[in-house]
């Protein structure tokens, strides 16, 4: 039975970008407002889940050729590297650094190494959620 779900697929194509940019906003706003790596990762995973529901698993695999196990590994390495970087410069484990920089487009911004740790959390959450959903989802 071939069903014609053109409205769902067209809506999913547009809403995917809205959800993804909202996830990026949540991720970067996590230092001063509610949000952070965990919620951002879950929202990103839900955007990919929307694509998987609207299309099928092979199409999304062709669209985003990502092995999510590697995403988990990269996230863990990033978090561990950020946490253990301070040991190599004579500070205790998990010491974070921040400073103010003058970037060409953003002006005066404060860059903090906790954002890199949060990026690791983000990648781990996206990878774990997508691995679970893809593993359960494929039925044959």
């Amino acid at each position: 039975m071939k069903v014609n779900n053109v409205i769902l697929q067209f809506t999913a194509k547009i809403v995917f970008f809205i959800i993804f940019f909202f996830a990026v906003n949540i991720f970067f706003a996590g230092h001063y407002t509610p949000g952070g790596g965990f919620v951002g990762g879950l929202v990103t995973a839900s955007a990919i889940v929307l694509l998987i529901i609207a299309f099928d698993l092979n199409t999304v695999q062709k669209l985003l050729p990502i092995n999510y196990i590697f995403v988990v590994a990269v996230g863990l390495i990033l978090s561990l590297g950020t946490a253990s970087f301070s040991m190599f410069v004579g500070q205790p484990f998990f010491t974070h650094f921040f400073d103010y920089f003058y970037l060409p487009l953003f002006g005066k911004t404060s860059l903090h190494t906790a954002a890199l740790f949060d990026l690791g959390v983000y990648l781990v959450v996206v990878g774990v959620t997508m691995t679970i959903i893809q593993t359960i989802g494929e039925d044959e």
Partner: peptide
């Protein structure tokens, strides 16, 4: 509609 949520091949 279809009986399953995530399909391998549509």
């Amino acid at each position: 509609e279809k009986g399953d949520i995530i399909t391998r091949d549509d």
